[in-house]
Design a protein around this nucleic acid. Structure first.
Lengths: 110, 110
DNA sequence: TGAATTAGTTACCATTTGGTTACTGCTATT
DNA sequence: AATAGCAGTAACCAAATGGTAACTAATTCA
């Protein structure tokens, strides 16, 4: 049965559950961007030019709240902030990798 | 570089590309629901109770337009319509399976 | 006769999400 | 004195998404 509920313990569909964490329009792309290196805010923004900085901020905050990303702020001038995957975030690697593979085979240059 | 463009041939990010096909809130769940069997409209709807029939119709139409799902209509009364994955749709199995696995390990009963 | 059945569609509305522009604070550079 | 650099915020607006309720058609069942 493909069902879900708001309470975690009652969640019945694993796919629905995962989508609640990374279901946004940009979240998989952001995680994919962070998959192997920590990156600064401006770096992520430059790599995903179609994503506005405002939305990027929001999505990163949600990813942080959901325990997928760590935000490290350095109190320097000019400011520096680095984003990095948590262990949980890194555990999404196989999912992202399959997404990447499928995209490579079925979309890029097709 | 994680970039994308509207033209398929110019798409540079495989993840963004995949998301344009299955990036909706419900699409992965619908595909997951069809992964092993063809199903009737009402069956899918019953398995995803939080998804309204209107939205299900819309999403199935988009999936059909994108070549991931086949719609078979039998001109009977009462009407019968069956949905089934195409070859391309079936090729998403590894992606959906990794999603399912991650959900099982990290969300269900956690 | 009248209800139930299925897979929708239509009209309408509410919510969520996404996007643009301008602005901040502090320092170093020109 | 003005500007650039970074990582945002705030105010505002537009678009996408999601949801509800009522309606349809033709046949079967009670």
């Amino acid at each position: 049965m493909v069902t879900n509920s708001t309470k975690k313990g009652e969640m019945k569909c694993p796919v629905t559950g995962l989508l609640q964490l990374i279901g946004g329009k940009w979240k998989p792309v952001i995680l994919y961007c962070l998959r192997s290196e920590k990156r600064r805010f401006g770096e992520i923004s430059a790599r995903i030019p179609d994503l506005s900085r405002k939305v990027l901020t929001e999505q990163l905050k949600e990813l942080e709240e959901d325990g997928l990303v760590i935000r490290k702020q350095f109190n320097e001038i000019p400011p520096r902030v680095e984003y990095e995957l948590t262990v949980l975030g890194k555990s999404l690697a196989p999912v992202l990798h399959e997404m990447e593979k499928w995209g490579m085979e079925n979309i890029i240059n097709k």
